[in-house]
Nucleic acid binder design. Structure first.
Lengths: 137, 137
DNA sequence: ATCTGGAATTAGAATTATTCTAAATATGAA
DNA sequence: TTCATATTTAGAATAATTCTAATTCCAGAT
């Protein structure tokens, strides 16, 4: 066997059955699921899937840019099928997470880079407050 | 004993020895310490202090508005003696956290509130990128 | 059709951060 | 002093996530 032939097409099965099930679960969900919620749903579609595989798949998909991970405080990570840049609002009443999009994010990132002296990569903003449901308590 | 008399001056020892040691440690530190780093330092000043007390104190101080807690990804929380509103840049190279301050935060919060329909409470932005040290690799 | 090597999956153990529990201690008022 | 309450302590418990080692899968080579 020649080295070159192996090197050229060294592609394992990238989007395996379990990874695509995990991707489906995240994409089909309206809200932002935690890893254990993903596991529960994935198990309905593929009962033999393991917890570790859910974590591995989420990481793989995140690295591949197919899902994004959101973290708030010390709560469990949540996963989002929406991969275009956007921001999050979290309700201090019920914990609900809502996506929103700020139009001036590019200027904002430049301003932040200027103030911090960092070479910017991405910016994310988090609004904390009461969601429409909780503001009318 | 009358109820009223108790209600009026129901004040325990608010800033105990251990709490003020924890506060000192957080305030004196240049960078943003994790709970275990706070514990290590606090122990040098008060060797009998326990891990649980460090956590309890950090929570107490946070609720009292004397320290603030920052979280990134699934890493351990870090604590900041700076309590005026500010933002954070995190280096994707070395993990270093740097404070900065965006001047237009009030408008930004209004814009975020408008887009998310939340009743705003606070806003925080996170810049991800390379710190001055790491950008010249 | 079988072999083989690397990648992926599995189950469960291990790790890490944090919180909880119950007993002991300190504090300040009566 | 005594009492009630708040705090501290040590260690157990919990929760999220990662690691480990054994097994399985798959594509390409034989």
């Amino acid at each position: 066997m020649r080295k070159s032939s192996k090197e050229v097409q060294r592609e394992g099965p990238k989007l395996t059955r379990q990874r695509s099930v995990v991707l489906d679960v995240v994409r089909k969900s309206e809200d932002h699921l935690s890893a254990s919620e993903v596991y529960e749903s994935a198990r309905r579609l593929l009962p033999t899937i393991s917890y570790a595989t859910v974590y591995n798949s989420l990481r793989y998909l995140k690295d591949a840019g197919l899902v994004s991970e959101i973290t708030f405080g010390n709560a469990a990570s949540r996963y989002d099928g929406k991969t275009v840049r956007h921001d999050h609002a979290i309700c201090t009443g019920c914990g609900k997470i809502v996506d929103f999009h700020i139009t001036e994010s590019a200027e904002l990132m430049r301003a932040a880079a200027r103030h911090s002296r960092f070479k910017p990569d991405s910016i994310h903003l988090t609004l904390r407050g009461l969601c429409p449901g909780c503001r009318s308590d």
